Simulated assay, not measured.
Amino acid sequence: MSSVYFIGAGPGDPELITVKGKRLIEQADLVLYAGSLVPRELVACARDDAEVADSAPLSLSETHELMLRTVRSGGIVARVHTGDPGLYGAVREQAELLDREGVRWEIVPGVTSASAAVAAAGRSFTVPGGTQTLILSRLAGRTPVPESEHLRELARHGSSMAVYLSAGDPEGVRNALLEGGMASSTFALVAYRVGWPEEKIVETTVSGLAQTARDNGFTRQTLFVVLPGQDAESARSLLYDEDFRHMFRG
């Protein structure tokens, strides 16, 4: 049995968390959550006698000491991350410190904001007969991006894309996509604070990404989603075609 659970909280909606994730928060002795990204309501299910702490103002060493103190007293820690811990989740640094202490840990996946944004917009990443690929990436910032993974290079695939952590430079996102050959008229979404009460998702095009973000004041917690082929009227799944046969339909 693990002592520390890294739990994906989803994008913000308290109901967009897995059953397992919620159960572990309810059982934990220490609930440590990133208050700048995870709403307090999401951890409100913690036990009355559990310690609930916001990690936003804490350093890595301070969060580690909190977790270690709980584990050494025989308790369980729920370390709650926004979205899915496997995507820009910074779990590795915390896990390495726990490994040094011989503490067992486990990751509980969560809903990432790209999935929540497309669902809220009533859209799909893939298009029958069109793109079958989704690329998740970001602009380079304080965290560098390999040149081979520059948005310009990724855009050359013409596939669906979700661009995270790039709200500070929407012009850079737009320009990179256009430089990579993405058609300026390609359907796109600008999704702000997905899953939060103030969620706003605006439909636009690749050429309009930056202006849409600027006009709406989306400067933080904003996701850019590019969805080629959304206007293809003939795009229909073969699954429901009357002539489509598979092992359960003769």
Rank of each mutant, 00 (worst) to 15 (best):
D54K: 02
R249Y: 07
E149M: 00
L87P: 11
Y33L: 04
D54G: 03
Y164M: 02
D29G: 05
R142K: 14
T63F: 08
E198D: 15
F218M: 13
G75Y: 01
T143E: 06
Y164I: 04
V206K: 06
A140K: 08
L151H: 05
T222P: 01
E179D: 14
D99L: 03
V71P: 06
G250E: 04
T212R: 05
E41D: 15
A9K: 14
Y5L: 03
K20T: 15
D241Q: 04
L98R: 13
D231W: 05
S3W: 10
F187T: 14
L151F: 04
E26S: 11
L154N: 09
E41N: 13
P170Y: 10
Q27D: 11
G172F: 01
W196E: 03
G10E: 07
Y88F: 08
F244C: 09
G130R: 13
V19Y: 01
R123S: 14
E62W: 13
L223D: 07
G172A: 03
R245T: 05
D215G: 08
S137I: 02
D84Q: 06
Q132E: 15
T222W: 04
A116G: 09
T219E: 12
G158C: 03
R72D: 10
M182I: 07
L178D: 06
G89P: 03
S148M: 03
V80L: 01
P85M: 08
G208H: 09
A155H: 12
L178Q: 05
R193N: 11
R47T: 04
V91P: 04
T205R: 14
E62S: 14
S36H: 00
V108T: 07
V31T: 09
G10P: 08
R193V: 06
E101A: 04
D49W: 10
G181C: 10
A9N: 14
V225Q: 00
P197I: 03
R72T: 03
T18G: 10
A95R: 15
G89N: 07
